[in-house]
Design a binder for these strands. Sequence first.
DNA 1: AAGAGTTTGTGAACGGGAGAACAAAATCGC
DNA 2: GCGATTTTGTTCTCCCGTTCACAAACTCTT
Lengths: 235, 235
Amino acid sequence: MTSAASRKGGRARDERLERDIPEATIARLPVYLRALTALSERDVVTASSEELATAAGVNSAKLRKDLSYLGTYGTRGVGYDVNYLRYQIAREIGLTQDWSVVIVGIGNLGHALANYAGFASRGFQVAGLVDNDPARVGEKVGDLTISSFDDIDAIVSNAAVSIGVIATPASAAQDVCDRLVAAGVSSVLNFAPAVLTVPDYVDVRKVDLSIELQILAYHEQRKANGAAELRASLA
Amino acid sequence: MTSAASRKGGRARDERLERDIPEATIARLPVYLRALTALSERDVVTASSEELATAAGVNSAKLRKDLSYLGTYGTRGVGYDVNYLRYQIAREIGLTQDWSVVIVGIGNLGHALANYAGFASRGFQVAGLVDNDPARVGEKVGDLTISSFDDIDAIVSNAAVSIGVIATPASAAQDVCDRLVAAGVSSVLNFAPAVLTVPDYVDVRKVDLSIELQILAYHEQRKANGAAELRASLA
DNA sequence: AAGAGTTTGTGAACGGGAGAACAAAATCGC
DNA sequence: GCGATTTTGTTCTCCCGTTCACAAACTCTT
Ligand SMILES: NC(=O)c1ccc[n+]([C@@H]2O[C@H](COP(=O)([O-])OP(=O)(O)OC[C@H]3O[C@@H](n4cnc5c(N)ncnc54)[C@H](O)[C@@H]3O)[C@@H](O)[C@H]2O)c1
Ligand SMILES: NC(=O)c1ccc[n+]([C@@H]2O[C@H](COP(=O)([O-])OP(=O)(O)OC[C@H]3O[C@@H](n4cnc5c(N)ncnc54)[C@H](O)[C@@H]3O)[C@@H](O)[C@H]2O)c1
């Protein structure tokens, strides 16, 4: 990205906007944001990288390096101004604007998501709930009413939805995803245990409960084996 | 781990058991397993690394390397025997045995989890549902009845629970986690947006919806900026 | 039995991220 | 104003994971 610099009269940019930030850093920024919000609510004005890092559960060197990608928002010998840094991270992530979200598949999980207060509080507005089961259409969930899957295009364009959440069975996930993309959604959060294929410009993230459990199971098994071997070697 | 080899009479181990498998590989094994299960259900007997990789949404070289950590289960010129490989991966992850799970916090999300069929079908048995709200205790969810939080020790020891799932508000998460660990749980899956501190031997994994959304928002913003810059440069 | 064709398993090169360590920059005490 | 102290921003090194590329190993055909 050199467009700003290449534009006529573009002055040297000491701001670090649109420097490409490592994926790993981006994934941690929300954690920092949460820690900062917690500090702010306790009326803490300033925090050192050490304190922040502890609150976020990371190494302080890593935190400082992460923040350095955004700009130099700290003060040496002092630390970071909590509210200022919080704003800067929020701006970087794109949380100074609201994002509209549509949830597809209002079953067990979809209901929980639809009722989840943590969406709105972080700037994500649920603009629509969609299900293809005619028996479900019309049901009220919180403030919203479940719409037919056919209304998806209207919902996406009316509310400028850019993020779609898939909470349907795995068998329907790819179809649903295709429809979402066709409707104009360019980011997808997938709860179904399925591999989604999308065009390049679409981002997909998945949340997969059973993968997480299986990873834990692997480590449990190792611990159990280790303990068994230890007992055997002591015998 | 050299205990087996160092044990008296331990013969040379051509099996690759307890070779330490990279974390990144472990996280993908469940995906391969799912792909293999799908193939098996379609009565596919053999699959090449290329086919498997496509089904799992990864690069075939990566898949082969991942599988090579487990052993040499493929046949050159042919591919992998679907059922055989499936069994080997399941064994490696620890899915040849069942795992007992306790869910803490049966609110919106906890209900969805408790009703989730995907647990049992993958060898994870819900051994108990726990909530500290007296009004909730006694309520039936599926086959199970919600127990008081005080029963946690009994549940964990009776059912040999090793995995705890936290679905309480963030403010309660650390307390709940401490209680779980004290009761004997050594793996935790945390849905609450909170950083958990645990002893070394305890594994924690987190599922954080709002982090996922914020990561998507960041990329959405970048796409939007990119498009805006493109328009500006064309003007 | 040998050659052509496939596909695995892995060595090697590469890239990105983690952490240690330190110079630079700010504050504070006097 | 200046030295002591604190804490950031960044450089450097190391490690892990990804990908390429190819020899080895297997099947199939003739
Ligand atoms: N329930 C959980 O706790 C949980 C946990 C992890 C993952 N998941 C996954 O989330 C997904 C949903 O789980 P659930 O328990 O809510 O299932 P569910 O069966 O209760 O709900 C699925 C909903 O999707 C709707 N649906 C089906 N096909 C559709 C389509 N083509 N278009 C629109 N809507 C459609 C159904 O009508 C239903 O309402 C599944 O893929 C599941 O594996 C669920
Ligand atoms: N609902 C969602 O879709 C969703 C999505 C992502 C994350 N989360 C997170 O999951 C957690 C639960 O969300 P929810 O919507 O189900 O909330 P909820 O308020 O509906 O449920 C929380 C439950 O935990 C119980 N609880 C509170 N303190 C407890 C304690 N000390 N011991 C045992 N039980 C306790 C409450 O009685 C309640 O039943 C929250 O941290 C939330 O941020 C929820």
